[in-house]
Amino acid sequence: MKNSRRIALMFTLTSTGLILLAAAVLVLMVPSIKQSARAEWHAFTCPAVPESRTQLKEYVSGITSYADPIPFGTAENSGSPNLHFDFDLDLSMAVYQTVDAFDGPKAFNMMRSSPAIVRVVGDVSDSLRSVSVGFWMKSTDPSPGVRIVIRIERPDGALVEWNEKRLLDPEHRTSEWERFNFEWLLRELPVDSNDRVIVFISSKSSEPILIDEMDIVFRSAKPFNQGVPHA
């Protein structure tokens, strides 16, 4: 390599390095930029929502019905703030199910990810305060990497916020049924009644995870008056 090329390359690398360094310093040292970068990174890392998800049918009357995906169910459900899935329905797609259950005849045999449950905030809550998700699970993997993911998005799909809880390996009991709960307290989060709450489970394990008796609760500030329509 000629000297001039070498110098040009070194100049380019050095200046790129300096620019990157300056950017890093800016991100680390300026609180507003740091905060903004953190928020961007947080949004960027939101796990992709599984394609299999609840189908929403909105009627002229303003009522929405929900068809939850297998193995959660197939029947149309109204918007109850308390969802319970026992995975005991006799489904033809047996690949999702196992007879090794925590309670009842069957459990959900999850590979990598569950389908997503979707609800419109105003259908299941009046001033949504928190979203809780919990289930019994069993895994032979000592490090199953199970996550409960909750995402809130606008009707057009824009992310409002997301949150997750990871099962910590030291707390995991291999090959035993164990309860895994997550409560996301929304606090000051600006949630609109038309926003969507999306819930799913994921795992990094190559082995199936057994899931049973799953609950999703949408908590309002007060007892929920389901008869009152939302905007």
Binding site: G134, E171, E178, N181, S220, P223, F224, N225
Partner: peptide
């Protein structure tokens, strides 16, 4: 503790006097 099972998930009450299961 353990953190994985906390907090317990209590049902949201629904104000339907005709259906005790709701409240």
């Amino acid at each position: 503790c353990p953190e994985r099972s906390f907090p317990p998930i209590y049902p949201q009450q629904v104000t339907d006097r005709n259906d005790p299961r709701s409240w």
